[in-house]
Design a protein around this nucleic acid. Structure first.
Lengths: 346, 346
DNA sequence: TGTTAGCACTCTAAGGTACTGAGTGCTAAA
DNA sequence: TTTAGCACTCAGTACCTTAGAGTGCTAACA
């Protein structure tokens, strides 16, 4: 168990290290105004803290650096009360003041402002298709064997795919199918579109359509890819300004990971509600060894829709990041819920 | 004017430097089998070449390195005949063997294969809207004051925008407008959609619609952004493996530029037809100081549609890059033209 | 007159040594 | 329990030396 003084020293040390990125020595700590005890005392305490695994030395006569365990403890128990400057708050609010129509834009802008305010890289998981429902489906022929299928969701999201039409399927067949789909599939959540279609529509389609099998395989291919949530970024290269990323190999590893949407998706997918912090190895991904990720969720009508996140070095400003993130998640939730309700109750 | 021998030596030097990234000395050159004269002779020639500005020293007793002028001359006059291995050719052909339906995918894949084959960063300017024509326009209401507008082009390209509907404009008005648009604007090139609409439709609309002014401003905002060509990338981080990009600041500058679509667009927009090489400063952009860009165009029915490009260090394999690029541009042209014709003549 | 061998010279890169300063751990006294 | 004091450690820097790759120049050669 840590004593009051040890807690205090650990906090001072981590705060200092977050600012300077330099190992912190006992003398540095003793010089602070609110420290009454001597550097020798601090040395003793530091030795204890090191023994318990909260801090480390970079070499035998260096100052101390927080360990991942130390950061974990700091985040869980030692964060000072959140302070957001009015400037920051205004900055965020002003973003939502101009009521943007397109969700994509709202999110892209949010990513931008996050990375600007923090100088870290911001990552946002776009709204899940999860709860959005089909409003309308349309098929527009392009040539004798291709057509564009357009799905419009009640969230305003539009999805389109080009597909091949088997020669045995006629245009009038397709028209019939579309009509039936619009009747039967309206207000079905996009996520269960495929299964609903297979279940509910099979019998109806069989009645009205000749080449049921061909049509069916065609439709199956259409809904093959449940469109994953899109990943948005802000300040992708901000991380390169951090001293811990002077090494080009680390950078390449990390930037490569950014390009893999599926990997990022898994990293951001939160395990629990609320603001979550993952420190270094906790991300179990080599590229993220020296990074921490702070995530928060946003909601529409209480349903979790996606996450917003900040990625920085393990030595990141957790308190500030969490505050900004929480704040923005809140605003995002409000905006999107408003928007959604205006659609739903129309 | 350069003598035969000087040409030969310059060529050997640049070839060597491209492979090794190390300054090339007279002895290195003299050791080559096909070199009959001594290193002393070569030293004399190198001194002349340096005086003429084709090569440089990194310090007073170092070997020589090509200058930008040297590269320029090399690219214009000294390239050895193109050699593409069968493997490369097959690689590219196989890409187009599976006839993909969506242009986006074709292009994304092309970018991928380009960067894989060369280990440089590939950049592709998506097909211009330029010649593609409107096939159909649709408006789907989302709420009492918002609707999604969907434009389908004959190329299969789908464009959608969410817009606000002024309260004074009724749904039936909108339906009327859409009908008129579909009548009048069909087969109008997307690029001139706005002007055609303003000219041709004004009179008709005035007749049928009450709130002409509101509708008009609404429509104007709709076509405000001529959608720029999309920029696709492959192997964004490949450039980081080049020894000239060990410096994190150079990297940041370059990667930041990648994020600015408009800047990249201007860089890629070719000035003349055919395969073009821009070396270092010729790109007049700080971030591109140490880079060269090779661009080629692709066409649909003889009309230039976009460009594909490779970005590497100035010390890049020009010959190979140009060959691969030319080859792929050709395949791309064929594929897209085929596709387009199957749409057009339907 | 063009080519080449030879040599003095230059500069980088790598390795070694010495010094400084920030930091530690331990001990003994307050 | 705290602290002053001291010996010790180690990274970083500066400085020097050496090795090696390369040049430019000169004088001799074909």
């Amino acid at each position: 168990m840590l004593t009051e003084r040890q807690l205090f020293i650990l906090q001072l040390l981590i705060n200092d290290y977050i600012q300077t990125a330099e190992p912190v020595g006992s003398r540095t700590i003793s010089k602070r105004e609110d420290v009454t005890f001597s550097s020798a005392t601090i040395r003793n305490e530091l030795a204890d803290l090191e023994e318990m695994g909260y801090i480390e030395k970079t070499h035998s006569s260096s100052g101390r650096v927080p360990s991942e365990k130390g950061y974990r403890f700091y985040v869980d128990h030692l964060l000072s009360p959140p302070v957001l400057s009015k400037k920051d708050v205004n900055n965020i609010h002003s973003l939502f003041a101009e009521r943007m129509v397109e969700v994509e834009k709202v999110i892209q802008q949010s990513a931008g402002i996050l990375s600007e305010l923090t100088q870290y890289t911001s990552i946002i998981l776009g709204p899940e298709v999860f709860e959005t429902k089909l409003r309308q489906i349309q098929i527009i022929p392009l040539s004798k064997d291709t057509a564009v299928v357009i799905l419009v969701a009640d969230s305003g999201h539009v999805e389109n795919r080009t597909m091949k039409i088997p020669p045995s399927v006629s245009m009038s067949d397709i028209e019939k199918v579309v009509n039936i789909m619009n009747e039967r599939l309206k207000d079905v959540p996009l996520i269960s579109l495929k299964s609903t279609m297979m279940k509910e529509m099979a019998t109806v389609l069989k009645k009205h359509i000749e080449n049921y099998n061909q049509v069916n395989t065609m439709l199956e291919s259409l809904f093959l890819y449940t469109n994953a949530e899109k990943v948005y970024y802000g300040g992708k290269t901000n991380i390169l300004t951090q001293p811990e990323f002077k090494d080009i190999d680390k950078v390449r590893l990390l930037l490569n990971t950014f390009e893999q949407d599926d990997v990022m998706y898994n990293i951001l997918r939160p395990e629990k509600n609320g603001i979550e912090v993952k420190i270094g190895q906790e991300n179990d991904l080599e590229a993220m060894q020296h990074c921490s990720i702070v995530t928060a969720d946003y909601f529409i009508e209480g349903k979790r829709m996606g996450s917003i996140a900040l990625l920085g070095p393990t030595r990141m400003e957790y308190q500030r990041s969490m505050s900004i993130l929480g704040f923005l998640a809140n605003d995002l939730t409000k905006t999107l819920t408003d928007r959604y309700q205006s659609f739903k109750h129309w």
